[in-house]
Design a protein around this nucleic acid. Structure first.
Length: 978
RNA sequence: GGGCGAGUGGCGGAAUUGGUAUACGCGCCAGUCUUAGGAACUGGUCCCGCAAGGGUUAAGGGUUCGAGUCCCUUCUCGCCCACCA
């Protein structure tokens, strides 16, 4: 698989370390560790003995770990491959030692553009280039000592392989999942190739970075959208990293909503809109169509500003993707004057607009606009001065004075007057001594009064302040239910907040006593102007709207207002009820688009169809598969976008399989993602000429138990292959709904300094050089040890020496091996290490696994001698990481069978239990003393802790208030007044 | 703008049912051996302090006997998506 090229920013303030060459001098009195010698030697032995071949007949439990097979580029293996492959190799080797029948396969995802581009440049046949590259990759993978089962090697460009890729395509065609459609495709003018949406990054070709153009072209499509629902739902049944599931779900983009009809005045036509917010229907103030919407041209004659509309459509078409995604792009649109649509809820006529913020490709290509409750509609309405109607209000229940069931309830409309004094940075509040609360100025809105007038009136009446500047209304109202102590009644208030700034201290006389009795007018800091300290439970909304600094749509839930008979209904309930009321159709939409499956290129699987003038597209008979990719002289795609295959007349012109009349072959080829969408199946039965996979092999090996790969394939390869698998399930070829039981991903390896490794920058680390310098075992351990497996990490050649020293020390350790028993502490540490390494491998904590092996080695080195048993156990748990050196040392110990066939050592749980305890004594949470206890009994430990001389000194006679004991670990003495 | 994640020595990083922060490795310092050291080995290495002791996990607040770990606020960085109604 091809790694997606991505831009990665340089981490700031990181020095690029100077690369040092390291001389490793042989030791004198001892056979020196020489990886160059032992690694080659053992690789040969393993190869000859077929040590890592999976057994089709074994009765042992099967284990099928999988890594993404590489695209064999001319650049050779990179460090990212090593990271993933070595990690799964560790897992595979451990499971093999656990006695499982392990299938750890590898192959080549060899179709693809880079090979073809290289062929164009050099005139070499892609087939030959592929052969050279795979040979090199194979050599490199073997050099690393990866325990692949080489007898099952597959290659997507092998006709015996792509026969089945073509076969699957034909089945899809027959089921109507493959269809031809004239679409606007993303066209890369440099690569001269159509791209899937997934292959366009920020409007540019993901391979070469050239801005993508739109071109209308007939393309083969695969109807992945028909599987959208299952691709989403079945994620529940697999063990993928959560972030992978989330990314897939986001990409599929399932959303549930309703389709509603807005009929058009004086016409039999209607606008179908899709919405997830049917509850806001009464807030619709206009409707919007995508410029490409078919209704637009149908109604054009009735539009009074036809010229303007036509011009707008033309300009929208010209806009390419770069323009559309440009930062801060302003929404544009134009009204279809003379056209009105009818809101089905209240039969109101609303204007109809066209605008490019509505996408033709999503939903119905038309929306009902609710500016009060949708950000985009809001922005648009502000720009074109369209009305904004609030129909949803947030709903709060007062936490301090909740409504009392026994009291009467009154509904009121309120204003909240929020006055800020910028000179003093303070807010105006009223403190009521009688009831003990703080509040902003509140007043009722009288009949026929504007909120602003009420606010000014109430402010003057209650506080006397008159010289204020009105800034703005803080969005729509908020509904609050509370008990009004001073009136002894429940209130449901719809409060609108108005924000003022104080201009001067000018005040008029105002009424004290009466209603205002006990009121104190105060200015408080913003720090105290917070929810919880104020009686106004709407305050969080006001503060949020103040901090936004501008008005915006309220997109949350709440309660309906101004919505006819639905007033007071909760949003969630209203969605259903309103939709029912206007006969909406409940519907699920997806962001996922159908997969553009054809490529006008040479180096891919030919699409096995024939186009007959009479019969249309006719599939080849299955016995005529594979349809072999013919040899051509020139690989260049043509400028008119036709595949180079179109130029081979003898190949193109055929007889129709159905009517035997003259017909032409389809000349498009399949994308690189085709062969990789099902390759994991073929490993179980790689040489089967009759079937894609036999049912016996299928039952034996499926599904993949653990699939590790790059995060960049989450929305492409992983989704595509799940789709193909589900299709194969539907036609009875496979028996599981999902191909991969578990999916994990590794982090990127960056170049030294944190930049992305790239050939053009020249900062690529070549595994060949590292192996030459340090050996494969060192490279493997380095990559496993460098950091957490799932995180991106920069290469650091300085650190490379650590793992090499580690291996040398293991090598030298063999001199200490005697038959004697080791100490109890060492014995316990060995067992702990066995457990830790085993657990860490399963949870991909490779770095901590190696760290614990280092700790054990350090302990061994402090001993005079170590026992043979302990030494061998150590080699065994190290073996998955460093297979060569451990094999050599294992054989030197006199073993006959390979260490990689030795059983995974067992740990004795009894030996993990400590016999003495390091007890930490704290006073008030601070460590004051430690001691060793041979008991972890609470009474004993506490007694010793309190008698400890240092503790006695610290306590200086004071009696502890409390003594807390954490079994076997810690005593915390709580004393007041120290 | 939305989603996900992260912030711990000079560097990569360890430690989460809350219980001695800085394991392991790199680098650095000193010593041993050596003609020599960019090798190897031994010891040291979070900060302040002669010490006793004090401080420290982006910043601030909270919960707790006890917080890197849990909660809130703020800041910074990375990744993915991005007009999806």
């Amino acid at each position: 698989m091809k790694e997606k090229s991505k831009k990665i920013k340089l981490k700031a303030n990181k020095k690029v370390a100077v690369k040092k060459t390291v001389k490793i001098k042989p030791r004198s009195s001892f056979v020196a560790y020489d990886p160059a010698k032992i690694e080659k030697k053992w690789q040969k032995v393993w190869d000859v003995k077929k040590l890592y071949a999976a057994s089709d007949s074994s009765k042992a439990k099967k284990f099928f770990p999988l890594v993404e097979f590489p695209f064999p580029s001319g650049a050779g293996l990179h460090t990212g491959h090593v990271r993933s492959y070595a990690a799964m190799d560790v897992v595979a080797r451990k499971h093999r030692m656990m006695g499982e029948n392990v299938l750890y396969p590898i192959g080549w995802d060899a179709f693809g553009l880079p090979t073809e581009n290289y062929a164009i440049k050099t005139g070499k046949q892609p087939k030959l280039v592929t052969k050279e590259n795979t040979d090199n990759f194979r050599r490199q993978l073997k050099m690393l000592g990866l325990s692949f089962d080489w007898s099952r090697e597959i290659n997507t460009t092998d006709p015996e392989y792509y026969k089945w890729t073509q076969w699957i395509f034909l089945q899809m065609y027959k089921k109507g999942l493959a269809y031809k459609d004239k679409i606007n495709i993303n066209w890369c003018p440099k690569d001269k190739i159509g791209l899937a949406n997934e292959e366009v990054v920020n409007g540019c070709c993901e391979r070469c970075g050239t801005p993508v153009e739109k071109r209308e072209k007939e393309q083969w499509m695969l109807a992945i959208t028909k599987y959208a629902d299952r691709l989403d739902k079945d994620l529940d049944s697999v063990n993928y990293l959560e972030k992978i599931k989330i990314q897939q779900r986001n990409w599929i983009g399932r959303s549930e909503g309703v389709e509603l009809d807005f009929s058009i005045v004086d016409s039999n036509k209607g606008i179908k809109v899709f919405t997830t917010r049917a509850d806001t229907l009464y807030g619709v103030t206009y409707a919007v169509l995508a410029p490409e919407h078919s209704l637009v041209s149908e109604m054009l004659e009735k539009v009074s500003n036809k010229k303007e509309v036509v011009a707008y459509i033309a300009s929208a078409k010209k806009r390419d993707d770069m323009d559309r995604t440009a930062e801060g792009k302003e929404k544009t649109g134009v009204e279809l004057k003379g056209i009105k649509a009818i809101n089905p809820a209240n039969n109101e006529e609303v204007p109809v607009w066209i605008a490019d913020y509505v996408l033709a490709s999503y939903g119905t290509g038309a929306v009902m606009a609710v500016p009060a409750h949708d950000e985009r509609d809001f922005e648009f309405a502000k720009k074109y001065n369209l009305p904004i109607r609030h129909v949803i209000v947030p709903s709060v229940v007062d936490h301090v004075n909740p409504p009392r069931p026994e009291k009467q309830t009154k509904v009121r409309k309120n204003v909240h007057v929020i006055v800020f004094d910028p000179a003093k940075n303070k807010y105006l509040i009223i403190r009521n001594q009688k009831f003990g609360w703080d509040t902003v100025v509140i007043g009722g809105i009288e009949e026929g009064e504007e909120p602003l007038d009420s606010a000014v009136r109430e402010l003057a009446e209650e506080t006397g302040y008159t010289d204020v500047e009105f800034k703005r209304i803080l969005g729509g109202p908020v509904r609050a239910a509370y008990f009004a102590k001073h009136k002894d009644e429940n209130r449901v208030a719809f409060a609108t907040a108005l924000y003022f700034e104080l201009k001067s201290e000018k005040r008029q006389a105002f009424e004290e006593g009466g209603e205002n009795e006990g009121n104190e007018i105060m200015w408080i800091d913003p720090a105290n102007f917070v929810p919880g300290k104020m009686v106004n439970s709407e305050l969080p909304y006001w503060l949020e709207r103040i901090s936004l600094g501008k008005d915006g749509a309220y997109t949350g839930g709440g309660v309906l207002i101004d919505s006819g008979s639905f007033n007071g209904t909760d949003t969630e309930i209203a969605k259903k009820e309103i939709s029912k009321f206007v006969h909406g159709k409940v519907i699920t939409k997806y962001k996922l688009r159908d997969w553009v499956f054809s490529r006008q290129r040479y180096w891919g699987e030919p699409i096995p169809l024939v186009n007959c003038g009479k019969c249309g597209y006719v599939p080849l008979s299955e016995k005529d598969l594979p349809l072999i990719l013919p040899a051509v002289k020139k690989y260049e795609p043509t400028d008119d976008g036709e595949s180079p295959l179109a130029a081979i007349k003898s190949w193109v012109n055929v007889k129709c399989p159905t009517c035997k009349g003259p017909a032409k072959r389809e000349t498009d080829t399949m994308p690189q993602w085709a062969g990789s969408s099902w390759y994991y199946l073929r490993y179980a039965d790689p040489k089967n000429k009759k079937e894609l996979i036999s049912s016996k092999q299928l039952a034996k090996w499926q599904p993949v138990d653990w699939y590790n790969g790059g995060m960049e394939h989450t929305t492409l390869h992983l989704l595509y292959s799940r789709f193909w698998h589900k299709f194969l399930f539907d036609i009875g070829v496979v028996k599981t709904k999902e191909p991969y039981a578990k999916r994990t991903s590794h982090g990127l390896i960056l170049a030294e300094g944190g930049a992305k490794m790239s050939k053009s920058v020249g900062n690529v680390v070549n595994p060949d050089e590292i192996v030459k310098l340090y050996g494969a075992d060192t490279l493997r351990i380095y990559e496993m040890f460098m950091g957490p497996f799932d995180q991106a990490i920069a290469w650091n050649s300085e650190s490379m020496i650590g793992p090499r020293r580690f291996i040398e020390r293991v090598w030298n350790l063999s001199r200490k091996v005697k038959k004697d028993e080791s100490s109890k502490e060492i014995d316990s540490l060995v067992h702990k290490t066995i457990k830790k390494v085993g657990d860490d491998i399963e949870s991909m904590g490779f770095n901590t696994a190696i760290s614990s092996l280092m700790i054990l080695l350090n302990a061994f080195e402090k001993e005079e001698t170590i026992s043979k048993g302990h030494y061998q156990s150590f080699l065994q748990v190290l073996a998955p990481f460093a297979p060569h050196v451990t094999e050599e040392l294992w054989m030197v110990q006199g073993n006959k069978k390979s260490i990689h066939q030795a059983p995974w050592p067992q740990f004795d749980p009894k030996k993990l239990v400590a016999t003495s305890f390091n007890i930490v004594v704290q006073i008030n949470g601070k460590v004051r003393a430690t001691f060793v206890s041979d008991s972890d009994e609470e009474g004993v430990v506490k007694k010793y802790a309190l008698l400890h001389p240092v503790i006695v000194k610290w306590l200086s006679g004071k009696a502890p208030d409390r003594v807390i004991y954490v079994p076997g670990k810690l005593v915390n003495i709580v004393v007041s007044g120290l």
